[in-house]
Amino acid sequence: MKRSEPVIHMQSVTKKYYVGEPNELQILFDIGLDICEGEFVSIVGASGSGKSTLMNIIGLLDRPTEGEYLLNGTTTRVMDDKALSRIRNKEIGFVFQNFNLIPKISALKNVEMPMMYAGVSQKKRTQRAMELIELVGMGDRYTHDPARLSGGQKQRVAIARAMANDPSIILADEPTGALDTKTGRMVMDLFHELHDKQGKTIVLITHSPELAAETERMLTISDGRIIADSAKGGAL
């Protein structure tokens, strides 16, 4: 895929809740967005600005009310829930603020999980999961269950899990929000490493301008509209 071909292409995307009812609520207004392969993009905005809704739409957990969203050049509008699940599984790696590891199963099993849903054989997925765990520096703790890991360690396992099916995008929602500055720094370094060494496309959602400043491109969202894009020279 050439860099000119966007991984994410959004055109006139809106999101409304309670459509047709008196309390109709519009969260996103006319979002137009292109993110290309290998970009490290941050989306910043205050809480309630609509950045979580935008992330859900990018992550195919939610559908736009209007507008077009193309992932890798394929329209997602006509897909049913099953097809969306499959694309989520293969093309999107989620990293959540509160880690969201599955409790009571080992770090290794957590990393294997997306591959299990993709139907990868046990042998292959264990091998791949071990590689990823080594990559995030958790090689000595792969048998531990999440309760025995620190916040930073949990997030590193979560990043390994997000990488499992070699997705087109890593979608990180406030990945350092629940961590102290030092471990947050380590997690950010890991994202930089994935971006620099593996050429991953990363979309980072944060309310912290400092973290956003580290990324190649910063989008600012406010009241459901993208009000600034550093790639287009700041304020739109």
């Binding site: 992550g59 957990l61 829930d81 099953k82 699940s85 499959r86 989520r88 599984n89 293969k90 989620f94 959540f96 969201n100 590891l101 599955i102 409790p103 999980m113 997306p114 849903y117 993709a118 899990r161 099916n165």
Partner: peptide, 16 residues
């Protein structure tokens, strides 16, 4: 519930 949400985000189908 959270676990179910995570599994679905990671690509589990309703049937799974």
């Amino acid at each position: 519930t959270r676990e179910i949400g995570v599994r679905k985000a990671l690509g589990a189908l309703n049937g799974d």
